[in-house]
Write a protein that binds this DNA or RNA. Structure first.
Length: 351
DNA sequence: AATGCTTACAACCGCCACCCT
DNA sequence: GAGGGTGGCGGTTGTAAGCAT
């Protein structure tokens, strides 16, 4: 038990890697590949490290295809989405995030996301019948996506349920309110989130999720538009990813005309991603998540639908509603069922 | 400026699964 | 089938940098 055999046979150094050690490892693997990790140290110009440490250093830090840098809001949203499905399966989660390692995802979760989500009133959230409370996670994280029929609108402070939900009729839970729309869907009103600090020097991908100033974030704007086609079955390659659900009448209501039609085909090129609401629980739950086939030029070819952003935003907004983010109160509803979208408030997108 | 605290992240540890002999 | 070697994973710890007092 404990160290691998290669670590016991020779005196090995521990702790942080020096630039010289990094260079030795890079040079060796670049020329010969890693092969058997246990033999790498002695072959790589006499590295005083165990093979396991070399492997970790290469995978988590030196690999040339690592993305590095801060997590984007899209990545954060995807991590939360995946965590709701997979739990602490960091390696599996990382597979959906090209250029990110399991260690990186794990650290990001533990240092950033977890602390913010833990401030949620989980028992309160759990009173929503279709919200999934993850009893296996000690932090009590919940996933809206346990029910694929939840629809997050393009207005990031609203959450649509496709059918009347008796248990939620007249629901008014503090800042979260339920209304029934004239097209039969239930509408959960999340409190309007706050605008980003204009002078923020540090970039937090979490609080700002969903706030995507028009024309500033994605140069490939057209890729984030949802098709208006009415397809009811959807595929990624040969894979059926689930039937559609009955949707609001998008073309009739000026408000809902802004809402991406659930289950519309948004596959573009060789890379694609799906709105959560498209997947049936009878199918692979991961089928509705971003898929990165070989040759995918991430991140340029991939698009996380606005739904992801709004999902995150809904979580963060519900969390922030009980915190000190009182500035959000300056946003008043335009009318019943409508709030000012926070993207309108942005003058810039600091990175 | 010094000190203490917090945060982010690199690295390690222990365990498990798989493969080979 | 048993046992050793190895790769891989998740949990945890160590530490440097940033921040607050």
């Amino acid at each position: 038990m404990g160290h691998h055999s290669c670590c016991n046979k020779q005196k090995v150094k521990r702790g942080l890697w020096s630039p010289e050690e990094d260079e030795k490892l890079i040079n060796y693997i670049s020329n010969y590949g890693h092969g058997c990790w246990s033999s790498v140290p002695k072959l790589a110009a006499g590295l005083q490290r165990c093979g396991k440490s070399c492997r970790l250093r290469w995978i988590n830090y030196l690999r040339p295809d690592l993305k590095r840098g801060s997590f984007s809001p899209q990545e954060a949203a995807l991590i939360i989405e995946l965590h709701g499905i997979l739990g602490n399966k960091w390696a599996q989660i990382a597979k959906h995030l090209p250029g990110r390692t399991d260690n990186e995802v794990k650290n990001f979760w533990n240092s950033s996301i977890k602390k913010k989500l833990i401030s949620l009133d989980a028992p309160t959230i759990a009173t929503y019948p279709d919200m999934h409370y993850n009893g296996n996670s000690e932090e009590g994280f919940f996933s809206l996506n346990a029910n694929p029929n939840w629809i997050l609108s393009s207005q990031q402070d609203q959450l649509y349920l496709p059918t009347p939900t008796p248990m939620l009729q007249g629901f008014d839970h503090g800042d979260l309110k339920l209304e029934q729309t004239n097209y039969g869907a239930n509408l959960v009103q999340f409190p309007p989130p706050m605008a980003p600090p204009s002078n923020s020097s540090s970039y937090d991908p979490l609080w700002s999720l969903g706030y995507q100033p028009h024309g500033q974030f994605d140069p490939n704007q057209e890729h984030q538009n949802f098709s208006t086609s009415g397809a009811t079955q959807h595929y990624i390659g040969d894979k059926l990813i689930g039937p559609s659900i009955s949707a609001p009448h998008y073309d009739e209501d000026p408000l809902t005309s802004m809402i991406p039609k659930p289950c519309d085909e948004i596959i573009s090129g060789n890379c694609c991603c799906m709105p959560y609401s498209c997947a049936s629980q009878d199918h692979d739950p991961l089928a509705r998540l971003p898929y990165f086939p070989a040759g995918c030029n991430y991140p340029n070819d991939t698009q996380v639908p606005n739904n992801h952003m709004e999902y995150m935003d809904a979580i963060m907004s519900s969390s922030l509603s009980t915190s000190s983010y009182s500035s959000a109160s300056s946003l008043s509803p335009l009318s019943s069922g409508q709030f000012v979208t926070n993207s309108n408030l942005h003058s810039s997108w600091e990175t």
